[in-house]
Design a binder for these strands. Structure first.
Lengths: 214, 214
DNA sequence: GTCTATAAGGAGATAGAC
DNA sequence: GTCTATCTCCTTATAGAC
């Protein structure tokens, strides 16, 4: 369990600006700036439960205005998911993810994955909650699985080289590791004090143990 | 990351029986037996994306037949969530969850939580993916948070009594623990061989560490 | 880049027969 | 306990003016 976040609001969370009010300036968007507002809405209710009407209210523009920027609701999802996945895969390209002993490469990846989850929180949150209902979603899930598989292979390497303790199932270790890291989207909220220590704390706890032994 | 499950199917996953075919027996349900079929559909696409039409096709009865058993789609969700939460809270009532040193009580709870996640997999899966869009969902999320808070308090006790290692943040430990355990719904599938060892394996790994230390 | 108006279809739910 | 037929509302998306 870890349902830490505030009770998700049912009404739109974005800033509602009076449309057409006397002297009021209407918000003017490009595709990128729209995405910020849209992704917050998707995360508040889930993609499927968020209507174009919800997005319209949150962004302060009419439903039809969205179709000037994107082809439809699904493209908004696609743009957000690409951003999340690009951030994750960039980690694997870093030198410290590719050179050195497996254990150290793995620790680097874990640390950086925590950092990316934090820096790209809304986008990764959307990714991690996908169900695979459309082709767009399934493409994103396939990329996500590829990322997981890369990390899992490295976990297996690190365990086989670092055998000092009782046998550990590499596959299970990779799953629990992912689960622990990804849970960040359920409880981390921007502005936490001490967030700069979080990546190292996570690395330490998954290495030394989360709970005291019996 | 941990998107292990097979590509979620968009069409209904349930058994489609020919309705009204010559000589065919129509499925006859009560509220409980309907729930099995319904929850599988909810999990395949997500609650919001699953229509009464989808449920109808999966169960092999017409949409309107559902309203003989329940008041509507939301009551189906409610029944499933109650089952998940009742299973989890029953753990906390067990003697071994209430008596003894905090560390041992905690290990028992973790072990049992893994068992319940496995035995009630579809129901707990539904619970863990809630967004809180309706009053029913928010009630369930509140109960879930209460469960988490109980475990988190015990984690804090166990850590303060078992200080042999470097300082551990109890709050973070509780979060990572929940994340690791709950990830089970993303990768465990019924019929796995060796599933009987999983609860103890999880307890061991969250205690001794998931990854080798540097 | 935004608007109003509207089309076309799918949603959850109900009525009443068998 | 299930059916067919229907209601009403809400959904995504488009047309065309400013």
């Amino acid at each position: 369990m870890s349902a830490a976040a505030a009770e998700p609001p049912v009404p739109p969370v974005g800033t509602r600006r009076a449309r057409g009010a006397a002297g009021a300036c209407r918000p003017v968007y490009d595709a990128a700036s729209l995405l910020t507002v849209v992704v917050a809405e998707f995360n508040a209710r889930g993609y499927d439960a968020t209507s174009m009407e919800d997005l319209s209210l949150a962004a302060g523009i009419s439903k039809s205005s969205f179709y000037h920027h994107v082809s439809g609701k699904e493209e908004l999802l696609d743009l957000a998911l690409q951003r999340a996945l690009d951030g994750l895969f960039a980690i694997l390209e870093e030198r410290a993810s590719r050179d050195g002993p497996p254990v150290e490469r793995l620790h680097h990846i874990v640390r950086r994955q925590v950092e990316v989850l934090i820096s790209e929180l809304p986008y990764v949150t959307l990714l991690l909650r996908l169900r695979g209902n459309t082709e767009t979603e399934r493409r994103a899930l396939a990329r996500r699985r590829a990322f997981d598989a890369t990390v899992a292979a490295l976990v297996a390497d690190a365990i086989s080289e670092g055998q000092v303790r009782a046998t550990v199932e590499p596959w299970l270790a990779a799953r629990l590791l992912s689960g622990a890291i990804n849970s960040i989207i359920d409880w981390y909220r921007p502005g936490r004090t001490g967030a700069e220590h979080l990546p190292d704390e996570v690395v330490r706890m998954v290495s030394e143990g989360i709970l005291p032994p019996a």
